[in-house]
Simulated scan of single mutants.
Amino acid sequence: MSSSENQSVLTASTAPATSPSDLITAVPTPFLADGSLDVPGMKRLFTALATRDVDGAFVAGTTGEFTTLEDDERLAVLEAGLETFGPERAYLHVGAAHTRHAVNLTRAAVSLGARKLAAITPYYFPAPLEAVIDYFRQVVDAADGAAVYAYLFTARTWTAVPHDALPRLAELGVTGVKISGETDESVAAYLAHAPAGFEVLSGNDIAYGELVQAGGQGIISGVSSVFPQPFLNLRGALRAGDADGVSAAKADVARAVGLVRAGSLTHLKAGLELQGLSAGPVRAAVEAISDEDRAAIARELERWNG
């Protein structure tokens, strides 16, 4: 069976989770009506998200519209994320289209106090494996001991990293991977090739339960920024080995993912603004949310929040 970001991946039992079941929220970046970075709003949003019982926050990633940020803006977002979530909960994304840029961002993030970094592979031009290996070698060196996660997203970057390359990444000092946009079979193959202690995280919100039960570390979820409770309920049931709770929570997660179109930026930001949180427009050129979808998100928020 194949999967996309709004389909379940991996067949797994409802046995107790053997990995930490990490729930990491991918945080959006707020902008003002004129498209400029909303620094005060960003700090308010990050503060609100930080009060939730999540295991971490993925800052300035795809959900954070990193491709639209200028370097000074991106560093401001990274600094705010680090200050709000703290060095053990903030996963700061420093990936770039080329190695020099990623290394410079890595050094800047480390100088701010970052201890957990993520870097998407080189993108736009599909990079061969040896170029990817050299890219992560230099990022790890620049990280100066901070954990580095390789962000694999072939559908957006055109750069494919073979499943059997994970041991080579581990040898470089890469801590783990975040995988987005892959099929069930591909995710399973990455898990099979991951060395002991190498963390496998997924960007597929709806696959949280299956990935953890198959041995993955956890999820990096944009949808949880709007609807945290279904994901928190699923994490709790996974950690408790509560089969009935897992089943019920998976259904709620699937419902939430469907309502925000598997993490559509416009849907996520609408969901945040409906809760009185700063979000603003989407800077990237994407489709607007319909009135019907906005109303459906509002009804679901009322269901969860009373």
Rank of each mutant, 00 (worst) to 15 (best):
14 T>G: 09
15 A>E: 05
15 A>C: 02
15 A>Q: 06
16 P>E: 04
19 S>Q: 11
20 P>V: 04
21 S>F: 06
23 L>T: 03
24 I>N: 12
25 T>Y: 11
26 A>P: 12
27 V>F: 04
29 T>Q: 09
29 T>N: 00
31 F>M: 02
32 L>A: 06
32 L>N: 08
32 L>P: 03
33 A>I: 10
37 L>G: 02
37 L>Y: 02
41 G>P: 04
42 M>R: 07
43 K>H: 10
44 R>W: 03
44 R>T: 12
47 T>C: 07
47 T>P: 08
50 A>Q: 08
50 A>K: 06
52 R>H: 13
54 V>A: 12
54 V>T: 13
56 G>Y: 09
58 F>L: 13
59 V>K: 01
59 V>Q: 01
59 V>D: 02
61 G>L: 02
62 T>C: 02
62 T>F: 05
64 G>F: 07
64 G>H: 03
65 E>W: 09
66 F>Q: 06
66 F>C: 05
68 T>N: 04
72 D>H: 14
73 E>I: 00
73 E>L: 00
74 R>H: 13
77 V>D: 06
80 A>G: 10
80 A>W: 11
83 E>G: 10
83 E>A: 13
83 E>T: 14
83 E>K: 13
83 E>R: 12
85 F>Q: 08
85 F>M: 09
90 A>M: 01
91 Y>I: 07
96 A>Y: 10
96 A>M: 12
101 H>R: 14
102 A>Y: 05
103 V>E: 01
103 V>Q: 01
104 N>G: 13
105 L>W: 08
105 L>D: 06
105 L>V: 01
108 A>Y: 14
110 V>S: 05
112 L>M: 15
116 K>C: 13
116 K>M: 12
116 K>L: 13
117 L>T: 06
121 T>V: 15
121 T>H: 05
123 Y>N: 10
124 Y>H: 14
125 F>K: 15
127 A>R: 07
127 A>M: 08
127 A>N: 14
127 A>S: 15
128 P>C: 08
128 P>I: 12
130 E>H: 13
131 A>W: 15
134 D>G: 03
134 D>W: 00
135 Y>F: 13
135 Y>K: 07
136 F>E: 00
137 R>W: 01
139 V>M: 01
139 V>T: 05
144 D>M: 03
144 D>K: 14
145 G>N: 05
